[in-house]
């Protein structure tokens, strides 16, 4: 069970959070101009990396804020957390 450092509340138990999948997938501004393949890329394609992965998490049973986590999925080590909208810090 992770210990997650919410950027707004500090360290909390994983049970307070909800995972939200891969981070930095930006919703296209003009979806109507995309081909089926381009839209499918946004809609369905996720990386699921073994190793360093960028993830969205939500402090669902806390401040309810979304934020980003950089996690090594091979050993679950959370390298860093940063706020939504910020670009990922260099590791």
């Amino acid at each position: 069970m992770f210990l997650i450092n919410c950027p707004y509340c500090g360290e909390r138990d994983q049970s307070e959070f909800k995972a939200g999948g891969e981070a930095h997938i930006i919703r296209p501004k003009q979806p109507t101009e995309l081909s089926d393949d381009e839209w499918a890329e946004y809609l369905f394609m996720r990386k699921n990396i073994k190793g360093i992965q960028f993830e969205r998490w939500n402090h669902a049973h806390g401040c309810r804020k979304w934020f980003n986590i950089i996690r090594d999925t091979s050993n679950d080590e959370i390298k860093t957390v940063y706020k939504m909208g910020e670009s990922p810090p260099k590791l």
Partner: peptide, 12 residues
């Protein structure tokens, strides 16, 4: 949750 998600992440 879904509405909050869009507000915070896509349309801040």
């Amino acid at each position: 949750s879904k509405l909050e998600d869009y507000l915070q992440t896509e349309w801040p």
